[in-house]
Design a protein around this nucleic acid. Structure first.
Lengths: 345, 345
DNA sequence: CCTGTAAGAGAAAACCTTTTCCCAATTAAG
DNA sequence: CTTAATTGGGAAAAGGTTTTCTCTTACAGG
């Protein structure tokens, strides 16, 4: 009877092995592989060939220890289901993988103890820097990152003003949406958004009012509720049941609200975009593409934001000093069908 | 004019610093902190006190180099937007953080080059092991992990049969749903699912048939389409427009289909769950809770699956050998309102 | 008083790589 | 032929920690 096949993992080949096989010292081997030092071209090539043959890969731990740089960063988030943090992560990873940097993802929920644990683990592992993100801009993670031994960058969340943060230009995004409605000839544009306690809500509401004023259109008070489809439904009831003049466009604070609005409009026999145009926010494709008709929505370009954050962190790690403050990155309007075409045309 | 405040990061305190301040050798200091070696209780306590005072934290890189163990694992995924991989990640992280293990998250999309890049970066950084996951069970990642220097565990995806894999018990989940309908007294239970090319589709369909047969109920051919709401709509048309007897329950292959089904039923004036009960699959809360009525759905317990995978990887790293093969973890039915109460009662 | 043992603490090697400095040998210049 | 410069390559230290081995001192037993 055959004995249990216990998987045995071969010892990694070290520089010493390469050097021995090539008949040189480790110093020479190292220099050969790193294009350093002086030696004959043949020696260099022979060492390289040996290393290739052996499948040598330098031990990052040893390199990191020496260089005091681990080519590792930490991403801290409390966005458990990743609606915002995953696109960010994707951008960050994209920007960094080509530099050989890997990313520790740490979900700290809302638990300070967990946050502490993760941060300490990362610092012990000598991450080169940390990117902190969250699921809402105006709340920070349940942990203080202000006096760490490594640079910290905030993305999609904004802490004390002398930190470095990247956020989406919410006002700009809202302007994009409302101006698009204006361009299409809509005249009575309503705004249905989330809870006033979220910083983005009043910000977008102000942009909404500004654009309407600039265009000489009537401003109605934004309807604030929750971020849910159910609220979208109810908001439609409020907008269309009163005796007021009915809107011909609704700019929604997120895609779920927009979805609720569209469904409610259809149930009332109103056509979208024929009678009422709708624009959402977040461009959560899985929702935006499932609405009928597909939802026009403001995209915060989170992957690009992540990329910027990653690159900035990298340059910070490299010793460049960056000015503190908040950088707003532009949003982009993804036009599908729910907003309609120009009315006169 | 004040000069630019260049943030300066203080040198980390090393064991040498602690030893010097405590007036002992680094060897003694190390032993004091690790509860090793012999020394007077006072010496030990004095060293500890010094370390605490200095805020000493051992350099993981140095420890890892020596122990040939980095307390780091890699999670490889191609599920960009993390519907499945994030709950998994959450479970893995949960299981490992208490052991001081951090997780590299690597999204390899469908790109073999990217996969190669990430895997090499992780191996260079001496991860202790790798967990591979994906967004569908029957496809593996675009990269070969079979001859790595570290243990590999698959989660929610199943590769060659002599690997170790954790997957959800799809059949069991489907049984759970259909049996629940039976228990509620539903008699004509339909099944609407995704594309036949996904391995889970025929598996669940078979479980569906089996349960109906066991209960002596009529089996109708499952309707296969895409994973979208739109398909849910269309399936309802097929089910309810023909002259066939109409179903009083629909078991759907995922929550998006279920949502489409529920919306379509409502549009036809059929009440859910009054006239027709609906159960979904995945328990994607953001969808399940937004349907009207809230959707009963099969939950694959992905976090638990991740936890198991993490713990198993850990024991593998520790030298335990585990039997190859696929472990199926049970699903659970999350009952909300769309499936209804017992009809008689 | 002498020897054996145990306690307390340090020296040094090991993990793996990079880099600085140094040495020997060859070549060029005078 | 001597001196200086250059070339090819190695020795060793550094990075921070753990662990084994060794050394010194004190103490108990005879």
């Amino acid at each position: 009877m055959a004995s249990e096949p216990i998987p045995v993992f071969p010892k990694p080949v070290t520089l010493r092995d390469v050097a021995a096989l090539a008949g040189v010292s480790v110093a020479t081997a190292s220099k050969a592989l790193n294009d350093q030092g002086r030696m004959t071209a043949e020696t260099r090539e022979r060492i390289r060939e040996t290393a290739r043959g052996l499948g040598f890969r330098p031990n990052s731990l040893a390199q990191s220890l020496l260089r005091r740089r681990s080519f590792t960063v930490g991403l801290l988030t409390n966005d458990t289901y990743g609606r915002f943090s995953l696109p960010l992560m994707s951008g960050i990873s994209d920007a960094l993988v080509d530099n050989g940097v890997s990313v520790f993802l740490c979900n700290v929920e809302e638990d300070p103890r967990l946050g502490q644990l993760h941060v300490e683990a990362m610092l012990d592992k000598r991450v080169d820097g940390i990117i902190a993100t969250g699921k809402r801009i105006d709340r920070h993670l349940p942990i203080d990152l202000s006096n760490l031994r490594v640079p910290v960058i905030y993305a999609f969340t904004q802490p004390d003003p002398d930190a470095i943060a990247f956020v989406a230009d919410d006002d700009g995004g809202a302007r994009l949406a409302v101006e698009h409605f204006c361009k299409l000839g809509r005249k009575r544009i309503a705004h249905v958004s989330g809870p006033a306690s979220f910083a983005v809500v009043p910000a977008r509401a102000r942009a909404y009012r500004d654009v309407l004023t600039e265009h000489g259109l009537p401003v109605t008070e934004p309807l604030l509720g929750s971020w849910s489809e159910a609220w979208g439904h109810e908001a439609v009831a409020q907008l269309f049941d009163g005796g007021n003049e009915r809107p011909d466009a609704v700019f929604c604070g997120n895609d779920q609200i927009a979805r609720g609005v569209i469904d409610a409009l259809r149930e009332r026999g109103l056509s979208v975009p024929g009678d009422v145009g709708v624009i959402g926010f977040d461009n959560w494709e899985i929702v935006a593409e499932a609405t009928r008709p597909p939802l026009t929505s403001v995209d915060m370009n989170l992957a690009a934001l992540g990329r910027e954050a990653g690159l900035t962190l990298l340059s910070l790690v490299g010793g460049t000093s960056a000015a503190p403050g908040i950088r707003k990155l532009p949003c982009r309007l993804v036009v599908r069908q729910s907003c309609g075409h120009p009315l006169d045309g």
